[in-house]
Amino acid sequence: MKNLPPLTPMALIGLVGVAAFIVLAAFAPWLAPHPVSEVVGGVWDVPSADALLGTDNIGRDLFSRLVWGARVTFVIAALSTAIAFLIGVSLGFYAAVRRGWIDQILSRLNDLMMAIPTLIFALVVLAVLPKNMVVLVLVMATLEATRVFRVSRAIAADLVGLDYVEVARLRGESWSWIIVREILPNALSPLLAELGLRFAFAILFLSTLSFLGLGVQPPIADWGSLVKENKDGLLFGIFAALIPGAAIAALVICVNLVVDWILRKTTSLKGARRNG
């Protein structure tokens, strides 16, 4: 990951945004003025010195809940994305390298999974299974993994045909060597971009699930749950729900800006070979 592309202003905004989010998540206990479920005032109070962004639907400090929510959102989105990549990349690379019937079986099973609308699949599974973080992370990871599988299989299928991979096969190298040493290092840049995108989608997906009541369960809350809890305030002209909503939007945009920046690097790598 040497020679990063030149930092554009947009990339800088994205990096700052993502960094702020991670700081918020990592240092929540020190940054949040109040514990997550402490009632500090009345219902939907206006901002004050004690509650910087006002209070929520049962009088808790909205700013504190936003800070704690960043932590929950980050942990779940990061874990599910990481697991999705572990499953998706290894199966995707394996399918691309082995080709033939192994590829057919894995790819068609993946198509089957992708044929079911993500949200409906998640709603059904989460409604049946116990509502806890582990199940939530695993369900999200499984659904994300289908997309990661597609992308990584496509990237690897391009690389498998190259002469240096054939030379490794002729040498008699094992599949694991070919995947880890020959393919993975050359697939890192596009995969990194995909990782960023998937992370952004995971945040959105988690927010959706929480908004629908199937994600993070009270009393703790991620940003999606905060929107859900405070949405009724909109009817009375209280904008508490918009603040976590805006936070989600800002974070996803920031992640996308960073991804764009990394993708510039990927394409400049590909364009490095010139003729003439």
């Binding site: 002469d163 240096y164 030379v167 002729l170 040498r171 040493r181 290092p185 050359n186």
Partner: peptide, 20 residues
Amino acid sequence: TLRNIQIVNQIPDLALNPRQ
């Protein structure tokens, strides 16, 4: 047998792993 038969390809750019 694999050891005894080696290959040199047409386009050296494609025959060398750019990350090694």
